[in-house]
Each structure stands twice: as C-alpha cells, then as structure tokens.
C-alpha cells in the first residue's frame, strides 16, 4: 500500500536516492538474470533429462548426460504403454474418472461449507471453524487405519468409493479454508441486493457467490486434480485389482513387472504420467500461484 505513496510526491521532495538506470544497474540486473537462469537450469535438469531419455533409443538411455536425444524414437512410448500385463489406457481412464469425481465433490461440498462460514451467523460458528483449521494440521495417519476398517466393513475395498466419497463430504479442509478466505473478500452489498430481489440463502449462494467465486473454484479444481492424479497411498491401500489401478500404481508396477533393462519405456510412461499436471499448470499457473500465496496450499 505504501509503495505507491512516495512515487506520487514531487521529485524535489525525495532527492536522497535518484534511481536512474545507470550502466552499473544494468550490469547488475544482467548478472541477476544470468544467476537465476543458471540455478533454474540445474533445478529443471532432472525433468528435462527424463523427457530427453524417453525419446532416446533403448541402447543409449543410460548414463547419457545430454538432454537432446541423438536418435529420436517413439518406441519407448509404444512399448511402455502396454508393457507385459500393464495397460496404461486402462490406468489413465481409471485415474481420470477418480480425478473428475474428486473435483466435483470438492468444489460442491467445500463451497457449501465455505458459504456458511463466510456469510452466515449460527451457534458454535467459532468452534466449528477452529475445527476446520485444526483438521488442516491433522496428520492423515491418524485416520487411515480406522478409515480402512470402516471402508472394509462397507465392502468398498477394491472400488473407487474410498477415494471419491470423502471428497463429497468436504474432508479437504484446505479448500474450505481457501474458499472462506475468498468469499470474505466479496462485497456483502451484492448479497443484500439479491435478497431484496427475493433470493434466499440458496439463491444468493447459487446466483451471486458461486459465479463470483470462479477463481477460487478454479484453484480448488486444479489442486484437487493435481493431488488426486499424484495420489499414491490411497490407491495403494484400496485398489488391489490391476484392472482398477491408477497411473501411479501402474508406474510403480513397472519396477516389479520388469527388469532394469526397461528404463526407456519407464521414463516414457513417467513423462506421460506428469504431462497432464505440467500441462494444467502451464495453462492455469496464475490461479495456482495465487492460491498458494493466499492459503499456503501444497
């Protein structure tokens, strides 16, 4: 807020540090960019290397440092896609179904809860909101054993229910918190106007809050996608039948199913596995980064 104020003052009043772009400053800026790019290259090198290795002919996938394949081939992708008993078409479909259901569940259930916390007055509001914050920090290990027992009783093992149903019950407190923070920034005069037009709470939620909350909903959807797509422990616990495996389980199965010789196909499938995440990120990185900055999501 105060960064703008001094700039508006007449220049005479602030003669202390005339900030003209000197040659010195230019050199320093160039050095800074060079440093940043060098660090960035080191950090991204592993990923770039993996993509390069996935296009490399099998006989030279190992221990080569270069990023650019000397011979270009798609064989690794062809081989990896249906390696032995593995079938990545199946895994992609399974992962996609789970991810879509989780997104719908999280968006619906978390926005409903968030509206109540952000806009309505009700008994025990403070205590309940404190519970939202407490469950943010709750280690998931405390509930995985009893949840497994519960889902086992319900005969949900080896189905996608244990992975998707909890999302419809707003168990990801992070997103409730994120949406509460967002809805609080919306002007209340809009609610009031809708009420005068005859809207009840459901109407205000549907016609005013939801449309205005699209950025927060987008962030929630993206993060839900990334988390469920990456999730390993959940599918590992609940999906035993290879027909129901997700991409992460399929990738993990690569090591068990094959020998050391199949690194090319492995990296091809690893690249395919993270491609949707990177793709979504490139499309929506502003939303994601604002989400991280406001709520500390991971």
């Amino acid at each position: 807020m105060s960064t703008q104020a001094p700039a508006r003052q007449p220049a005479v009043l602030r003669p202390v540090f005339p900030r003209r772009p000197s040659r010195n400053a230019l050199v320093r800026a160039a050095a800074r960019h060079a440093l940043l790019l060098a660090v960035l290259f080191v950090i991204l090198y592993p990923l770039l290397w993996m993509v390069g290795a996935s296009f490399r002919p099998e006989n030279q996938a190992f221990g080569t440092l270069g990023l650019w394949p000397s011979g270009f081939t798609l064989d690794n992708y062809r081989e990896g896609w249906s390696y032995g008993t593995l079938n990545f078409s199946r895994y992609f479909l399974n992962s996609l179904v789970i991810a879509v259901l989780c997104i719908v569940g999280n968006v619906v259930s978390c926005s409903l809860a968030a509206y109540a916390f952000a806009r309505l007055e009700f008994p025990f509001k403070r205590a309940l909101f404190a519970l939202v914050l407490a469950t943010l920090l709750l280690p998931y290990q405390v509930t995985i054993v009893p949840q497994y027992v519960l889902f086992n009783e319900l005969a949900w093992i080896n189905t996608i229910m244990p992975l998707t149903v909890p999302k419809f019950l707003a168990t990801d407190a992070f997103f409730v918190f994120l949406m509460v923070q967002f809805i609080r920034t919306l002007p209340r005069e809009l609610d009031e106007a809708a009420r005068l037009d005859g809207c009840g709470h459901l109407g205000i939620f549907r016609r005013v809050i939801l449309p205005l909350s699209l950025p927060a909903i987008g962030t929630t959807a993206m993060f839900t996608f990334i988390r469920t797509w990456d999730d390993f422990l959940g599918p590992l616990l609940y999906l035993n039948d290879p027909e129901r495996w997700t991409v992460t389980l399929g990738l993990n199965g690569f090591l068990d199913n094959t020998g050391v010789s199949s690194f090319g196909p492995l990296f091809a499938m690893a690249t395919v596995a993270i491609a949707p995440i990177v793709g979504f990120f490139l499309v929506s990185q502003r939303l994601l980064i604002e989400g991280v900055a406001t709520s500390g999501l991971k």
């Binding site: 990923l47 993996m50 390993f232 990738l251 993990n252 690893a270």
Partner: peptide, 10 residues
C-alpha cells in the same frame, strides 16, 4: 510433481 511416483522413480 515432487511427491509423484514418476519423479521418485526418476
């Protein structure tokens, strides 16, 4: 991608 199976394998 840091917590993914793909990067762990890498």
């Amino acid at each position: 991608v840091g917590a993914s199976v793909a990067v762990s394998l890498l």
